[in-house]
């Protein structure tokens, strides 16, 4: 009896694994394709039907993706796109962490008149779709002289976003208020409490907010499409689209090699932090 129970359990586990492996393959598919293209010779990148395993493995593509730049061809080295994306990610993530933690501290740990109303308004702004704001914001950035610079794509991150404020506020509220009181008795200012009590405990939540923002920037297409003008300033998303839409000889393999190089660290990062990441979201408790 006990043995058969164990056996069913084993069978069940095996079944789950089977399903997981099959689904993994399905979800890995795009990445595998990217890797496969990254090591192809150029004339095999556009075959119909696609060829998965290249006739020759062009490992040199990775090196070339870094160095490939030809003024005479008018191409931009693909890594430039990666670099621009990273610049935007770094600046945006830093801004998100700094600004939202400050704001969330005010919403989650301090008492002030009108707080709950302000918080409700903040939540409501999550429903405003970007297209509504697109035209006036464009006009505004034009007045600032920011069109064609990176600023429209990262400066707003330094002024908070509703979603991140919400996540962090939930988390901050779960930190025992006794800690604040104790620090206050020790003569700590609010800033001191924020900096030495709350922030060190909030790392998982900050990581979540940072990663979400990172991915948002990473995948953003509409923003760069509107604000960036010069090919030298394009991000990966926009650069990839540029080469997809042109008739000319697209260096798909190099493009994919560049993408792979840029994407690899993020995958590794996610792999090693996913547990904390998920715990971080758990602790923010989206339960409202």
């Amino acid at each position: 009896m006990a043995r058969s129970h164990k056996q069913t359990q084993k069978l069940k586990t095996a079944g789950i694994h089977l399903v997981l492996v099959a689904l993994s393959l399905l979800f890995m598919f795009p990445l595998l394709w990217m890797l496969s293209t990254a090591v192809k010779p150029i004339d095999e990148t556009m075959l119909q039907p696609p060829k998965w395993i290249p006739s020759v493995f062009m490992w040199g593509n990775f090196r070339e993706a870094f160095t490939y730049s030809s003024d005479t061809l008018g191409y931009i080295p693909f890594l430039v796109y990666g670099r621009n994306t990273l610049i935007l990610c770094i600046l945006g993530v830093a801004g998100t962490v700094v600004s939202n933690s400050l704001v969330a501290y005010a919403f989650g740990r301090l008492k002030w008149p009108g707080r709950d109303f302000a918080f409700a308004v903040t939540l409501a702004t999550m429903m405003v779709p970007f297209p509504v704001l697109m035209v006036p914001i464009y006009g505004m950035f034009k007045e600032f002289g920011w069109i064609g610079t990176f600023k429209p794509l990262w400066v707003p991150a330094w002024f908070g976003s509703a979603f991140a404020i919400f996540l962090l506020r939930q988390f901050f509220r779960s930190i025992p208020f006794e800690l604040s009181e104790a620090a206050k008795l020790d003569g700590c200012s609010e800033w001191g409490i924020y900096w030495s009590v709350v922030m060190p405990l909030a790392k998982p939540a900050l990581a979540v907010v940072a990663l979400f923002h990172f991915m948002g920037t990473w995948n953003d297409f509409l923003g760069p499409l509107i604000y960036l003008l010069d090919q030298k300033t394009f991000t990966l998303s926009l650069g990839l689209q540029v080469f997809q839409s042109q008739h000319g000889g697209t260096q798909w393999n190099l493009l994919m090699a560049a993408s792979a190089i840029v994407v690899a660290p993020i995958i590794v990062l996610f792999f090693f932090t996913q547990k904390q990441f998920i715990e971080g979201i758990t602790m923010t408790g989206l339960k409202g």
């Binding site: 069109i147 064609g148 090919q231």
Partner: peptide, 20 residues
């Protein structure tokens, strides 16, 4: 200085309206 720009008809309009 020559710069290659894709989607040039939309980009130039954007850049001109953007003042750049």
């Amino acid at each position: 200085e020559l710069l290659t720009v894709s989607g040039i008809q939309d980009k130039t309009l954007l850049a001109t309206s953007g003042g750049n």
